[in-house]
Design a protein around this nucleic acid. Sequence first.
DNA 1: CCAGCGTAATTGTCAGACATCTAAATGTCT
DNA 2: AGACATTTAGATGTCTGACAATTACGCTGG
Lengths: 244, 244
Amino acid sequence: MKNASPKPGDLSAQIAGQVRDAILDGRLMVDERLPSEAELADQFAVARSTVREALKRLAAQSLIRTERGATGGAFVNRLSFSEVYDAQVTQSALLLSMNDVAFETACEARFAMERACAPLAAERRTDDHLAQMRREADRQSQPDLSDEAFCASDVAFHRALVDAADNPVLGFQLAGAVEGMQPLMNMITFTARSRGAIVAFHSKIADAIEAHDADSAIAALSELESYTQELADTVISARRARQK
Amino acid sequence: MKNASPKPGDLSAQIAGQVRDAILDGRLMVDERLPSEAELADQFAVARSTVREALKRLAAQSLIRTERGATGGAFVNRLSFSEVYDAQVTQSALLLSMNDVAFETACEARFAMERACAPLAAERRTDDHLAQMRREADRQSQPDLSDEAFCASDVAFHRALVDAADNPVLGFQLAGAVEGMQPLMNMITFTARSRGAIVAFHSKIADAIEAHDADSAIAALSELESYTQELADTVISARRARQK
DNA sequence: CCAGCGTAATTGTCAGACATCTAAATGTCT
DNA sequence: AGACATTTAGATGTCTGACAATTACGCTGG
């Protein structure tokens, strides 16, 4: 709306914004080469260093890539799902850690979204997805697994579930909710007993997905959510008591 | 894993990476001030301009903010939901536009996630949320609304629904799915008849939310999804026929 | 025909200077 | 002493000019 004159002092930010808008509007197409830094400096009537700072900003957002050499320059980058996926995970993890989000809130969001893809996963799952889920559940049964490894396997299990829904858009949106929560989950120490319960839920989920039974999968996910919440409550209140 | 020596040629990228890791690890706390650019240049044994490019990269990711003046400098930024929300929206929009994602896929993801927050919204909605939904539905009934304005109001309606779930984590995860899809939705021209149908669905959803009836809300959302898909199919096949 | 070499274009880095901004210290008047 | 104006120091923002590193391309000579 007000693209014409957003003058917040910083030239490099303004220039970055203008180029970003050009990419967003489609005035710059994927893989198109931007003018050289010197040309951009002329066009915007600024020094090359200022242009460079603007380009670095865009590069940090994966909007452009730069290549060196005679035919080099800055090119509009095709955003890939995997790139955005990673960015999503780190951003969510940071967001959660910096805003003291209640475990309950994050957990609720995560399972709400995961239940959202359960019907699709139940319908479309391949044998590969199922095998992956079984494999992770098996690994989680091994008693000599560290808490971190257990959590990593937990994430892998749920990621397999999400992948089974076979919708890349859904998949990358869920990245933050599932993988970004791992640091929070890592704060919970799992007893042998709680691990057993979790593996049982995972088996239940895998069974439901195998049977193409969406309702059972959703039910099992809800049970797992309740159990996770209970577990977190126990750990947190124990920690609080110990501090007092 | 391999943080020790990731030497991909670019000094500014390396430095940005080191500082980013420091923030992620918690070695740099929120609102902590980084050394001045000159000091950082000394520490890393590079020129100030190189340090600046690194800092601009981090600033583009909202990891730091810079303030001018005597007590200024670069400070670790507390990631806010609203910042990440905006980034999420533009990133999703770009991702969708650059990877020729099928409308069907995006639509499916969006409604799957929206249904996920319907139960929470039905339980927790306030009168404010409800009023907002009604207001947007009303606006959508006005025949002199442009297609863009209609779509914007549509987004606002669904955002009110998401907000009613009262879970910020869920809210920002859904940002990409709902608002990021707006460009795709804008490609559909709405006839008076289709607008009427959509408004009817919206009213149905608002009624269900008002009655705290999660199941009806989910059902209405599913109907709206089907209708949207039909509409898109019609528009797309008409466009294809016209081109041929 | 082809292998090697130089050349030009472009990004990456450096060094130093000046401009601008801002809080804090300092000075001045009542 | 307190309120207000002024200076000052430290920091970021910008500019200029130079050189290094890298890469495609064309030329030249065998």
